[in-house]
Write a protein that binds this DNA or RNA. Sequence first.
DNA 1: ACATATATCTTGCTATACAAGGTACTAAAT
DNA 2: ATTTAGTACCTTGTATAGCAAGATATATGT
Lengths: 107, 107
Amino acid sequence: MNIQFKKGVLELCVLALLEEKDYYGYELVNEISKNLDISEGTIYPLLARLRSEKYVTTYLKESQEGPPRKYYELTSTGKSVLKELKEEWFQFTDSVNRILKGRMLND
Amino acid sequence: MNIQFKKGVLELCVLALLEEKDYYGYELVNEISKNLDISEGTIYPLLARLRSEKYVTTYLKESQEGPPRKYYELTSTGKSVLKELKEEWFQFTDSVNRILKGRMLND
DNA sequence: ACATATATCTTGCTATACAAGGTACTAAAT
DNA sequence: ATTTAGTACCTTGTATAGCAAGATATATGT
């Protein structure tokens, strides 16, 4: 899978998942991995950044299956960033597809 | 416009345009700019890379309106890379949209 | 001579993803 | 008891690609 395509998009995916419910990091890796390749070395720094930018808050919760889980919860800032990012994403892909599809008639 | 989203995608756009006809760099900037923000500081290094990777060849042609133009022409390698990149792009955006749209019912 | 549009390219910077590794807890198998 | 495997967190160093800002040079009009 093309690594470059993911730049910036994983942030969008994480925020979108967090809109549904709170996730912990390891769980996000598993959930996103159903659709996209993603590694832990990517997600944890990303989550740290989202927290430092106040898009999410965190809380710890113990687990029966291993060490405590750090859950991530979307803030209202995070929600509005998500909305904006989502719009940008759809607009961006439309623009790209306009460039590609204008020339796809003979593909 | 989100800079990160463009990572890797501009290469795809350039190759897609070159499938239609030969372009020179400045012309590519103008053409792509109809849909996406792109700067010359991005396109020229990208074109140099495409050439070094043998996805394109170049030739010079004089112009009446300014200095000589360097035209870029797709190689057969470039064509197969384009085909692959295009497939990856559509698969990638589908995957992302699956993550986003599974949770958009109440947007 | 000067400004504008055309056309090329380079330098230094930034952002994000990844591989590879480390830490630690729990439960099951040896 | 010890090891293994699964869960769960994190960090370090590297690579890549885009951008702003600038340099260079040609052609045309003022």
